[in-house]
Design a protein around this nucleic acid. Structure first.
Length: 185
DNA sequence: AGAGTGATGTTCT
DNA sequence: GAACATCACTCTA
C-alpha cells in the first residue's frame, strides 16, 4: 500500500476527451485528505449536444474552455457536486466526468463525509468523497489536488453515457462512458 | 430487487 | 419557471 505513484504531467490532459477518458481509469485522484482509484469516466466534447458547453460559453461552463488539467465542478439537481477534469487544448470545450471510484486511502474520512458508506459508484458520491464544490471549479490541478499513476485495468468496457436523454440521438447513444471492473496487481 | 419519488438550488430561457 | 451529466429512501412483491 505504500507504493509511490508518479504524478501525471499537464501533457497527459492535453488530448481529446475520447483518448483521455479511458486512460484515466485506474489512475488515483488525491484531494482533501483522501485518494480514490478512478473506475468509471465519461467524455464530453464541444460538438456533443450532451455537453454543457454545446451552446457556447457561460459563467458556469467557462472552465471547460481552459487547457487540460483544470477542474470543472458544478451542482447537479441542487444537491450533488459533479467533478470533471478539463482536457484538450485551450478553447476546446471538453472534459471528463468522474463517474465512479474506489477508495484507495482515507476511508475513515470518507465514511464521515458519506454517512458511513464507502460506495462511490455515482458521480455525486465521488464529489462528496473528494469534498469538491462549485468553489473549486476553474482551479488548476496543483499540489493540493492532483492525479497520479495507479493501476492498469484488466479490460475497459464502453457504454452510453448516463442521464443525457435531452441530447440528440447520435450523442445520447455514443459509447463515451468507460468502465474498469478490475485491475492488474 | 425493482419501481417510484422527494430533496434541493443553480442556471438558462 | 423549467430543466437539470443524482441519491437515498420508501413502497410493492
Amino acid at each position: 500500500m505504500d507504493i509511490e505513484f508518479k504524478r501525471l504531467q499537464f501533457d497527459f490532459y492535453s488530448h481529446n476527451a475520447l483518448e483521455v477518458a479511458p486512460l484515466l481509469l485506474g489512475k488515483i485522484i488525491h484531494c482533501n485528505e483522501v485518494a480514490l482509484i478512478i473506475t468509471e469516466t465519461e467524455a464530453y466534447l464541444p460538438t456533443d449536444s450532451a455537453c454543457h458547453a454545446y451552446n457556447g460559453k457561460t459563467e458556469r461552463n467557462a472552465p471547460m474552455f481552459l487547457s487540460g488539467g483544470f477542474l470543472y465542478v458544478y451542482l447537479c439537481y441542487g444537491i450533488h457536486n459533479l467533478c470533471n477534469i478539463v482536457v484538450d487544448k485551450e478553447g476546446v470545450a471538453s472534459a471528463v466526468l468522474l463517474r465512479a471510484a474506489q477508495v484507495y486511502s482515507g476511508s475513515d474520512i470518507i465514511r464521515q463525509r458519506r454517512n458511513g458508506s464507502l460506495d462511490l459508484v455515482g458521480p455525486g458520491k465521488v464529489g462528496q468523497a473528494l469534498q469538491l464544490t462549485r468553489a473549486d471549479s476553474g482551479k488548476a490541478l496543483s499540489d493540493e489536488i492532483f492525479v497520479t499513476e495507479g493501476f492498469t485495468p484488466v479490460s475497459i468496457e464502453k457504454a452510453p453515457r448516463v442521464g443525457i436523454d435531452y441530447a440528440l440521438p447520435q450523442d445520447r447513444d455514443a459509447k463515451w462512458r468507460f468502465i474498469a471492473k478490475e485491475f492488474k496487481k
